[in-house]
């Protein structure tokens, strides 16, 4: 048919097909793009950052989405350095810090309420959260199409058993630059990131440099 050969129509059809296939993602900064199999933070999925540079990496991951207009809800993450977040490129005018109540049920409902409003959520999982709670949160995240970034400081194994992260990023600082025995100051750090998880075909290692 004549209409089917119309190039504009053809393009519209193919692009809609592709849009259906490709997953909705939020942008990440160029140096992190290789670490995400889809080239960005996939909406509805969970990324767990662990190891000694977990907070710095998590801040780096969420910086681009906030600059692009997404809001970041930081729920229950204690002692986060706001100045460091600003240096990593997080747009602070779109960041809200939420301190949930201590009880388990209220933690879940707080995260659910935050998921309604903020595109990206950064969580630190408190003690006593059960597998059922975690599943409820993840279902909510999937249905609301948020991106979830978990910070697991030390008890990484315990966290993994509660949440089912799609991508796990384990960090190890290999070198501190600029500081010596009694002189200089910390100028940058080299971090080795091991990316694994059920959505990652093959675990791989990347090296990243963190500067202010």
């Amino acid at each position: 048919m004549r209409a089917a050969l119309d190039p504009a129509l053809l393009q519209a059809t193919t692009s809609s097909v592709f849009r259906h296939e490709s997953l909705p993602t939020l942008p990440v900064s160029p140096d992190l793009r290789a670490m995400f199999p889809e080239g960005g933070l996939v909406r509805g999925r969970t990324v767990l950052c662990g190891g000694d540079a977990a907070v710095a990496l998590a801040l780096r991951i969420v910086s681009q989405p906030t600059q692009a207009g997404s809001w970041l809800g930081v729920v229950g993450v204690h002692n986060i350095g706001v100045q460091a977040a600003s240096e990593q490129g997080v747009a602070l005018q779109r960041v809200v810090f939420v301190q949930p109540a201590t009880s388990r049920a209220e933690w879940v409902s707080t995260v659910a309420a935050a998921a309604d409003g903020f595109d990206v959520l950064m969580l630190e999982v408190p003690h006593g959260i059960t597998v059922a709670d975690a599943r409820r949160v993840q279902t909510r995240i999937q249905s609301r199409r948020n991106a979830l970034v978990l910070i697991g400081a030390t008890q990484k194994l315990a966290l993994q058993s509660v949440f089912q992260p799609d991508v796990v990023m384990d960090t190890t600082t290999t070198q501190w630059n600029g500081i010596e025995r009694g002189s200089g100051h910390v100028q940058s750090r080299e971090v080795c990131v091991t990316v694994s998880g059920r959505r990652v075909p093959k675990a791989q290692q990347y090296s990243l440099r963190f500067v202010g």
Partner: peptide
Amino acid sequence: LPTPSPSVVYD
């Protein structure tokens, strides 16, 4: 403190 700033600041 010189940059980079610490990412964990204890209350």
